[in-house]
Simulated assay, not measured.
Amino acid sequence: MDKAQRASAIEAAYELLGTPRSHLRVKLEQTEDAVLLHYREQTLTGVQLDESGINAASAMAVALGVNVPAAGETSEVLASTGLLHRVLAISDLDFGNPASFELANVLVNEAIDMQRSSRGRNEATPMDLGELESGQAFGPYVIEISQPDADAYIAATGDSEKLHDFSGNTHPLQLDAYVLSRLIAEIGIVENRIETVHAGQQMTVHRQATPGEMIIANYTLKSCSNRRGSIWAIFETTFVDEAGRRVAESSSTIIMMP
């Protein structure tokens, strides 16, 4: 990819990144003479494997939190649009100019801070139940359920009609069960050996999700009350696809008895 091709790719990439999103699955690829960054079928940017391009590729990989792939291989990662803006800027630097190294260092450090922030949201230390407050947000949680797992879940219901209705798709309750387990881990229910009852659930489905599709879930604690030593919590969940389109919403009532 020469400079003109990169400029054209970056211009199109900025249009794609115009809508802020927290998770885009991108792929860093090394070909015979270049390192390219792709989103689906679109090449976002790329650098030639000359001295400047090798420096740029290394900085891009660090910003994304991956290694530069070997020739003919790829590295995939989830990245926010904000982080990708930094990667695009890095790819367009001329490392023949010493000042570019200083600017690249700033951009890489900003990207690393974004990586840490994202990991902090998804790998939080189990919290004290006393910290739960109405309006509190949890997530985002990224879900990707394979076809075998989707089929196994549907078959486990023991209902042949359900198996027919959802054949080739992911059962919406499986999405909810998956992220609920992540939420439970984040709250610290398992680690603290808290007895829990899943007391109620409602779900609205806008469309069926397909196996292998990336779904992003965000929880909000709608209400939380203490009743005779037990904590009653109602969590509302929004499921969206990679483009931000709504897939489903759910409401779950959980009773926790410390």
Rank of each mutant, 00 (worst) to 15 (best):
L93K: 12
I254L: 14
M214N: 01
E11A: 15
R40G: 04
C224N: 12
R119T: 11
R40W: 04
G229W: 09
Y153W: 12
T170Q: 00
R182H: 06
R121A: 14
E161C: 13
H23W: 02
A217C: 00
L37D: 07
I255N: 08
N55M: 15
E11P: 09
S58D: 08
S8L: 07
N192T: 07
I216Q: 02
Q115M: 15
L49V: 04
M203W: 04
H206E: 09
E191F: 04
D165C: 05
I187T: 06
E32R: 13
N218W: 00
A152W: 11
E11W: 10
K3C: 08
A13N: 09
N122S: 15
F138S: 03
S223H: 11
S146P: 01
A4I: 09
Q115G: 09
D241E: 05
V247T: 05
L163N: 13
R119D: 12
S91H: 01
A71Q: 15
G53L: 06
R119P: 03
N122C: 14
Y39D: 03
R25F: 01
P148L: 06
M214W: 02
A89H: 11
G46I: 06
G65V: 00
Y219M: 02
R116Q: 13
A4T: 10
A233M: 12
N192G: 02
T125A: 11
A137Q: 14
L88D: 00
R121W: 12
R193D: 11
P98Q: 03
T196M: 14
V106L: 15
S167H: 15
L132N: 01
L221F: 03
Q5D: 11
A99V: 09
T253Q: 15
E73S: 12
V197T: 11
M203H: 07
Q115W: 13
Y14N: 06
S52T: 11
H23S: 09
T19D: 07
A59T: 07
T157G: 08
R246G: 06
V47R: 04
S251P: 05
G244T: 02
E73R: 13
I254A: 07
V77R: 01
A185H: 12
L221N: 03
A124I: 12
L78S: 01
D2G: 15
L175I: 07
K162W: 14
L132H: 05
V62M: 08
R21E: 07
H206M: 09
Q174Y: 08
L88C: 03
L107Y: 10
V190D: 14
